[in-house]
Deep mutational scan, measured.
Amino acid sequence: IEKFKLLAEKVEEIVAKNARAEIDYSDAPDEFRDPLMDTLMTDPVRLPSGTVMDRSIILRHLLNSPTDPFNRQMLTESMLEPVPELKEQIQAWMREKQSSDH
C-alpha cells in the first residue's frame, strides 16, 4: 500500500509539472495564426496569391488538392516561399510568452 501511495504522489507531481509546462498560445496575434486552421504558425510560407500559411497545413492540403485553398489556382510545394522574418517574430513572441508564464 505504501508503494501505491508513493506512486500516486509521483503521478500527481508529474501531472502538476506538465500542467505548468503547457503554455497557452490562444492569444496569438492574428498575423501569427494560420488563416485556414486558426492555429499558431511555426513555419510560415507565402503562397503566390500573397496569403501566408503554416507550411504543415498547406502541405497537408496539397496532398488532397494541388491548389491554393483560397483561389483554387494551381499550387505546388516548390511555389511556397518561406517567410523567415515572420517566423522569427513568432518565435520571439513564443519565447516572451514562455518567460512570462514561468
Rank of each mutant, 00 (worst) to 15 (best):
Q89R: 11
Y25H: 08
Q73R: 05
Y25D: 15
R55C: 01
W93F: 14
E9Q: 08
S99C: 08
M53G: 05
K17R: 11
P29R: 05
M37R: 01
L7F: 14
T42L: 08
V83L: 13
T76P: 02
H102C: 11
E85V: 13
K17M: 14
N18G: 05
T39G: 01
N71D: 02
P48T: 02
I23V: 10
F32I: 02
M41L: 05
Q89K: 12
D30A: 06
P29Q: 03
L7D: 03
K10D: 08
S26G: 12
K17S: 04
P29T: 06
K17Q: 12
K10P: 13
M37I: 04
K87N: 09
K3H: 11
M94Q: 11
F70R: 04
S78K: 10
N18T: 09
E81V: 13
D101A: 07
T39D: 14
V15G: 08
K97N: 15
G50R: 08
S78Y: 05
T39I: 07
E96G: 11
E81A: 09
P66H: 08
S100R: 09
P82L: 01
D27V: 04
R20S: 14
N18Q: 05
D43Y: 03
P82S: 15
D101N: 09
E81N: 03
D24N: 06
S26W: 14
K10S: 15
E12N: 01
P66T: 05
H102Q: 08
T76G: 02
P44V: 01
A8T: 09
Q73E: 04
M37L: 14
M74G: 05
T67H: 02
A92R: 03
L6Y: 12
V15P: 09
L75M: 04
I57T: 15
E77D: 07
H61N: 00
D43H: 06
R33C: 03
R72H: 01
T51S: 12
K17T: 12
A16R: 04
D43E: 13
S49C: 03
M37K: 01
I58L: 03
Q89L: 08
A92L: 06
E88G: 15
M74I: 11
E81K: 13
K97T: 13
